[in-house]
């Protein structure tokens, strides 16, 4: 039950994009079209899961030997090399997957959502299974926000928007409105599971 609560919390009440502001750049930059948004969120989910699986044992080794302060350095290096490795493997062995998700991988190396997730897992003191569910929730929540937002942006395309609001400003205002709707989830999950 706790696992489901963790996952639902990161999807809805503590959504990475809309309440924690992690991974905002791709949220604004890659959401112009629905298919790129789906590809990007798939890639983010994939990397988040992999990064969690790899970083969890590494963190155990670090803290056990008293190198806890190297966390940030180790995590970002592992994530960066992991992304490169996944990109190369995908390009070579999984062509269809590469053309759908792989092209977005260069954008994920320095995505704060991935580093934020592994850091949060450590800070919250989650065990391995809980970390995986947290990653799953984070990735799905990311996808949910991206796909919803890309739908809105596709509709906004032909609208008559005042000149200096065009482009980035109106996108940010739309994001503000979508965030308002997610505020409505506050407390829902906590009440549901009595946590």
């Amino acid at each position: 039950m706790k696992l489901v609560a963790i996952m639902l919390t990161t999807i809805f009440t503590q959504n990475f994009v809309l309440s924690k502001f992690l991974g905002i750049c791709p949220f604004l930059g890659v959401s112009k079209k629905k298919d790129t948004a789906i590809g990007m969120s798939g890639a983010v989910l994939f990397v988040m899961l992999l990064a969690t699986i790899v970083c969890y044992p590494l963190n155990l080794i670090l803290t056990k030997n008293g190198f806890g302060y190297l966390q940030t350095l180790v995590f970002i290096l592992v994530i960066a090399s992991l992304v490169q490795f996944v990109e190369i493997t995908m390009k070579k062995y999984m062509k269809p997957l590469y053309s759908a998700l792989g092209i977005f991988l260069p954008l994920i190396t320095t995505n704060c959502a991935v580093l934020g997730l592994v850091t949060l897992n450590v800070q919250e003191g989650y065990n391995f299974i809980e970390s995986i569910f947290n990653a799953l929730g984070a990735g799905l929540g990311y996808g949910l926000a991206m796909i919803m937002f890309s739908g809105i942006r596709e509709r906004m395309e032909g609208n008559d928007i005042p000149k200096f609001w065009q482009g980035l400003p109106i996108t940010l205002v739309a994001a503000a409105l979508i965030t308002c709707t997610f505020l409505g989830f506050t407390g829902v999950i906590e009440n549901m599971f009595g946590a």
Binding site: L28, G29, V30, G167, L172, A175
Partner: peptide, 27 residues
Amino acid sequence: YGLLIALINLLGRHQGKKDAELNCCNV
């Protein structure tokens, strides 16, 4: 944030500058 960028765009247009464009992770 949107409001500020819109304001800067408005000021920039008078000087013939291009609008602010996302430079971080854009497709």
